[in-house]
Design a protein around this nucleic acid. Sequence first.
DNA 1: GGTATTTATTTAACACGTAAGATATTTACA
DNA 2: TGTAAATATCTTACGTGTTAAATAAATACC
Lengths: 178, 178
Amino acid sequence: MEDTDITDMQVSAPAIGDSEKLSLGLWLQLMKCTKEIEAGVGGRLRRVHNQSLARFDVLSQLHRFGGDWAAVGEIAGRVMASSGNITSLVDRMAAEDLIVRRASPNDRRSHQLRMTDKGAALFADMTRDHAGWVDAALNGIADRDKERLIALLVGVRRAFEANTAQAMDSSRGTGETK
Amino acid sequence: MEDTDITDMQVSAPAIGDSEKLSLGLWLQLMKCTKEIEAGVGGRLRRVHNQSLARFDVLSQLHRFGGDWAAVGEIAGRVMASSGNITSLVDRMAAEDLIVRRASPNDRRSHQLRMTDKGAALFADMTRDHAGWVDAALNGIADRDKERLIALLVGVRRAFEANTAQAMDSSRGTGETK
DNA sequence: GGTATTTATTTAACACGTAAGATATTTACA
DNA sequence: TGTAAATATCTTACGTGTTAAATAAATACC
């Protein structure tokens, strides 16, 4: 795979300002970088443990509850899954005996989840492998650069969230967003 | 959305070294950052133009061919779509008269794609909006930070590709990690 | 020329994402 | 109390991603 120059994609189509070019270039690099690593790590997770990143994410969140029951919506909110989506994911994971679901004793609308022993054991294995793979994938990047990147990415996320707090939900705005 | 500390996720489960913690933290930030922006921009693209990022990507690649016919595999390779996936995507886009497909005159195994006028017009609109949204989303980030980020991300991608060239295919699928 | 391999694409089966609408339950309030 | 609103989840429909296998044509090799 040859390296793609930052300015050779959508950027080249119409005339855009330099600021937009820079933003676009950053976004393209973010996408490429994330998707490459995601494909690599996700592929290994599937080949080695026959699990997806989404499932690993669910187990991670359940792990944080430390054996307590967690509401479905609580987990869906922390994972990047909508409530309408988590259902089938939970179904499949429950079918494999990784998690169990029960009706909430307090709120009869609500259902709760918990890892099974099998799920906890699998999660421990996956966590160990996952950390090793990611670290190996980033081998050669200086710790200092990792720290810089983390700090910059946190800044980007903060800016994005601030900018979209009121702008993103107008669901329209052809160009009036600048 | 509350900010999540870098070290509070999978990192907390088993004992991991500091280097792995840093790598893991970086990867988590990359994922969060990308997915947030992707959800925001992709959502607007869907609401305003009723198109997905995948379709925008296909149109972008076709645009680069400047009106010439492009082989399906050529496009699939440049987009993050597998050859097994591009078929239905192309079908739906052709059904909406955004692109046309024909058999290759040279190679009768191969099919070729080209944008329609309608597709080109839609692509122009989407490109303009898309660039504006991304730039607006990143408002507040200094240009030099964007440049730093781009440079660091390119470095990460290079390192990843070098590291996974021989390591990632321990099970199979040597070909393009893509 | 005939068979095997590679290449290009499609098909099929499945996992996972979103949005919209249905259901059931709790909560707020007139 | 009764009715409206909010909440929690599920269902449905569909778009998009993966891999594996099927199909077809070009290419290579004997």
